[in-house]
């Protein structure tokens, strides 16, 4: 496979995953602004930070304002992080790697793009927003479905999966990075009112509310939330889960190519950290420091994969 193709697959699925994650975050922000308007502005600020778009937004619009942030994140063509530009980028990468995709996967991506381009041609009114967000999630799921249902399990599939899990873990970590302080044990110790809305937002932004409740009998507890999103191997959005999947896929590549690459060692060392630490140990080390370390490792891994598999020269 061409290095460029591997890179195109990696990025195609990163963009798709990112668009889907952004849709989840808009959903969470919308929820807060409907239920606790006093917290809305700080919530939009936090969302912009987790998506890394604060500076770009500020330059264009100034202070965070719900409708503007939503429009910026959904469909601003000048925002490289908007869902629409993300889907466009995913499709452009799909065109580059078209020969590596089944017709079904290509058509799912192309249709996703055609539908969203039409849907997001005008500013979305509040009442239409939930439906639009649902379509985004659904279209993204169609692509994933076509990928799983029609693609041969080979290196092409592996790079697609690595892109998905890489982006997803990165996204979960960024949300945690923004919200870590409300999950700290000290928050509970000082006896401040348990901030259920904030906790709820974290779960909502990662679409894990229902899963969390099922697994924890509805007992909302910050430590358990942190544990769930970082270490729980059953949750497909947890850091540990995503990294074990990246490890698996790099393992398949190692088998197919017969070469152990530096990126494999990087993933192994991150996975080893998840195995060696329970939540108490992470809190002792410092949750913020742990997440910061993770984001640094993640950036290094992204660079290393690109080198190991010759995405570019």
């Amino acid at each position: 496979m061409l290095g460029k193709t591997a890179g195109g697959l990696f990025w195609m699925f990163r963009y798709l995953e990112r668009a889907e994650n952004t849709a989840r975050m808009i959903d969470a922000g919308l929820r807060i602004s409907l239920t606790r308007s006093s917290a809305a502005e700080s919530e939009w600020t936090s969302i912009l930070s987790s998506t890394g778009l604060s500076a770009a937004y500020k330059a264009a619009h100034g202070a965070p304002d719900g409708p503007k942030v939503i429009d910026f994140l959904l469909r601003d063509p000048n925002n490289p992080g908007s869902i629409l530009t993300g889907i466009e980028a995913a499709r452009m990468n799909a065109r580059v790697v078209r020969t590596a995709l089944t017709r079904e996967v290509w058509e799912a991506v192309n249709e996703c793009y055609m539908v969203l381009k039409r849907l997001l041609a005008q500013q979305i009114e509040d009442r239409d927003l939930p439906r639009v967000l649902q379509v985004i999630r659904q279209r993204s799921a169609f692509v994933r479905g076509a990928l799983h249902g029609t693609m041969v399990r080979n290196d092409i599939f592996n790079f697609a999966r690595i892109g998905t899990f890489y982006e997803r873990a990165d996204n979960t970590a960024r949300i945690l990075d923004q919200k870590y302080y409300i999950l700290l044990p000290s928050v509970r110790l000082v006896g401040s009112p348990s901030d259920n809305v904030q906790w709820d937002t974290i779960l909502r932004a990662t679409s894990t509310t229902r899963a969390y409740q099922t697994l924890h009998d509805g007992d909302v507890d910050p430590k358990a939330i942190a544990q769930f999103l970082i270490l729980d191997g059953r949750l497909p959005r947890s850091l540990a889960f995503c990294y074990s999947k990246i490890g698996d896929n790099l393992g398949y590549l190692e088998k197919e190519y017969g070469a152990h690459q530096p990126s494999h060692a990087l993933v192994d060392s991150v996975c080893a950290k998840f195995k060696a630490h329970d939540m108490n140990a992470i809190f002792d080390y410092g949750l913020h420091e742990f997440i910061t370390d993770f984001l640094r490792d993640s950036a290094a891994l992204g660079r290393q994969i690109e080198i190991d598999y010759r995405f570019s020269e």
Partner: peptide, 13 residues
Amino acid sequence: RVVDGRVAMRTTR
């Protein structure tokens, strides 16, 4: 690019 006297494509390997 030209590699070892041939025109070669950059693959993942």
